[in-house]
């Protein structure tokens, strides 16, 4: 080894080398592919292979794909369906997951590990298999559907009674399976956050006159906002781009955006259009996130309201 290398390595080169690994990973497996997609979104479809070509004359690029995105109702509707479904799933995951995460932090150590194990246990079974199981459950002749129908009919007047509840191939089915599939991604970050909270803060609030519900509202809830945001993003981002669940249980005439990307890319072989849809989805998700981070950092640094 040359001596300059040894000097460099022992000073701070070793730490730089280690830090470089994730950077290289991101550059090769995210940044470069993403750049390709961005570039492709400004191209047009050709009959070549790959079916991508640039205009022969200056300015060589076309904005037609993006023009279609904002002009064509198909895309606008797919984006809104995706965002609404993902948002509903996120809210429901939060409502179901928060009490579960909080409950896990309030039991003793050995129970905690068992319950956490149960949360991640579904991952041991194939994801597809579990979605197929839901298809079976939601079908009009399943015990699950009959049970729900009986419950609904018991509160409805007799002349409005359902024969069964049409659950399959609807946004209801998509949201239901999304909640089921992504619930662990909400519970785990929430648990990690809630578990770190100092329980003497709860005692302090109680000592100052707060009843248990007020303690939760004033102390636990505000301090768990980072966990809620982390869990919310882990559910919302993949859910809004979800392809498999809407394809299997969703309504084909009201597709989510993942389905649109898939169709453009494979069925229509319109790679530039598929790229434009993907880039727009990323901007739609990342820009609000960056804005949030920016204001959050400002609030943290300032301290004063």
């Amino acid at each position: 080894m040359p001596s300059w290398f040894n000097t460099w390595f022992n000073r701070d080169g070793w730490s730089k080398s280690i830090i470089a690994i994730p950077y290289f990973w991101l550059v090769f497996f995210f940044l470069i592919p993403f750049a390709i997609v961005v570039v492709m979104s400004f191209a047009e479809r050709t009959a070549t292979s790959p079916p991508v070509g640039f205009l022969p004359d200056f300015p060589y690029v076309t904005f037609e794909n993006y023009g279609r995105l904002v002009g064509d109702w198909v895309y606008i509707r797919a984006y809104s369906t995706s965002i609404i479904n993902a948002f509903m799933a996120t809210i429901l995951c939060l409502i179901v997951g928060y009490p579960m995460a909080l409950g896990i932090t309030r039991v003793n150590k050995s129970w905690r590990n068992i319950l956490l194990m149960l949360v991640i246990l579904p991952f041991w079974t194939s994801f597809l298999l579990r979605v197929y199981a839901w298809i079976g459950l939601m079908g009009s002749n399943s015990w699950f559907n009959k049970l729900l129908t009986a419950i609904v009919n018991s509160v409805l007047p007799a002349d409005m009674a359902f024969r069964n509840i049409p659950m399959m191939n609807s946004n209801f089915a998509v949201v239901l399976v999304l909640v089921y599939s992504y619930l662990p991604f909400m519970i785990l970050p929430l648990y990690a956050n809630l578990e770190k909270l100092d329980t003497t803060l709860n005692e302090a609030a109680m000592d100052l006159g707060s009843r248990p519900w007020q303690v939760f509202k004033d102390v636990t809830l505000p301090l768990s906002i980072p966990g809620i945001i982390a869990g919310g993003l882990l559910v919302f981002i993949p859910a809004s781009g979800e392809l498999v669940i809407p394809s299997l249980v969703g309504n084909a005439s009201d597709p989510m955006i993942g389905r649109v990307i898939n169709d453009e890319f494979l069925t229509a072989r319109h790679w530039p259009m598929a790229s434009a849809v993907a880039v727009a989805l990323l901007l739609l998700l990342v820009v609000p996130l960056m804005a949030y981070n920016h204001f959050e950092a400002k609030a943290q640094a300032g301290g004063k309201p």
């Binding site: 803060l201 109680m206 100052l208 009843r211 309201p305």
Partner: peptide, 22 residues
């Protein structure tokens, strides 16, 4: 009688100040 109904207040060893409040 629960802590929130007692005419008693406590200063905790760790102070237990609410970190999100001024």
């Amino acid at each position: 009688i629960a802590p929130y109904d007692r005419p008693v207040n406590m200063m905790f060893q760790s102070y237990a100040l609410f970190p999100h409040m001024s």
